[in-house]
Amino acid sequence: GTVHVGDKTYHFPTPDAAKKFAQEIAKKLNLQVTVKNGTWQVH
């Protein structure tokens, strides 16, 4: 899975790992999470 946070991109071996990371970052930074075609965006 891929997660975009601002101008950074993180790659994870599984979709679940990407989802978990995106949700944790969003919670920590009080941001929104959207997913499109398996790519997570934190914004």
Rank of each mutant, 00 (worst) to 15 (best):
G1L: 11
G1S: 11
G1E: 05
G1D: 07
G1P: 09
T2H: 06
T2S: 08
T2V: 12
V3L: 03
V3D: 00
V3A: 04
V3T: 02
V3M: 02
H4D: 05
H4W: 11
V5T: 03
V5D: 03
V5E: 01
V5G: 01
G6M: 12
G6K: 06
G6D: 05
G6R: 06
G6H: 09
D7K: 14
D7N: 14
D7F: 13
D7A: 13
D7Y: 13
D7W: 13
K8W: 10
K8P: 00
K8S: 06
T9W: 12
T9N: 04
T9P: 04
T9Y: 10
T9Q: 07
T9G: 03
Y10N: 00
Y10D: 00
Y10F: 11
Y10C: 06
Y10I: 04
Y10E: 00
H11G: 04
H11S: 08
F12L: 04
F12A: 01
F12I: 01
F12S: 00
F12V: 01
P13Q: 11
P13C: 14
P13Y: 07
P13D: 13
P13A: 13
P13T: 12
T14Y: 05
T14K: 04
T14D: 09
T14P: 01
T14E: 05
P15E: 12
P15N: 12
P15Y: 14
P15S: 12
P15R: 14
P15L: 13
P15A: 14
D16M: 12
D16R: 09
D16H: 11
D16Q: 13
D16F: 09
D16L: 11
A17Q: 12
A17M: 13
A17F: 05
A17K: 08
A17D: 09
A17W: 05
A17N: 04
A17L: 13
A18L: 02
A18E: 00
A18Y: 01
K19H: 09
K19W: 11
K19E: 14
K20N: 10
K20T: 10
K20H: 11
K20F: 10
K20D: 08
F21A: 03
F21S: 01
F21W: 10
F21N: 00
F21E: 00
A22R: 01
A22H: 00
A22F: 01
A22T: 02
Q23E: 14
E24P: 00
E24V: 10
E24Q: 12
I25Y: 07
I25A: 05
I25G: 00
I25L: 13
I25S: 03
I25D: 00
I25H: 03
A26P: 00
A26K: 02
A26Y: 02
A26R: 03
A26V: 03
K27C: 10
K27D: 08
K27Y: 09
K27E: 10
K27Q: 11
K27T: 10
K27H: 09
K28S: 08
K28H: 08
K28L: 12
L29T: 04
L29R: 04
L29P: 02
L29D: 04
L29W: 14
N30R: 06
N30K: 07
N30M: 07
N30A: 06
N30S: 08
N30W: 04
L31E: 03
L31P: 00
L31A: 15
L31V: 12
Q32H: 12
Q32T: 14
Q32P: 09
V33I: 12
V33Q: 02
V33C: 08
V33A: 10
T34W: 07
T34V: 08
T34E: 07
T34G: 04
T34A: 06
V35I: 12
V35E: 15
V35Q: 13
V35N: 14
K36L: 14
K36H: 14
K36E: 13
K36G: 06
N37V: 03
N37R: 04
N37T: 04
N37W: 04
G38M: 05
G38W: 05
G38T: 06
G38A: 06
G38C: 06
G38E: 06
T39R: 10
T39W: 06
T39N: 11
T39M: 13
T39E: 15
T39Y: 10
W40R: 01
W40I: 07
W40D: 02
W40K: 01
Q41N: 11
Q41T: 15
Q41A: 07
Q41R: 12
V42E: 02
V42F: 05
V42C: 03
V42S: 03
V42D: 02
V42T: 04
V42I: 08
H43P: 04
H43Y: 14
H43C: 11
H43V: 13
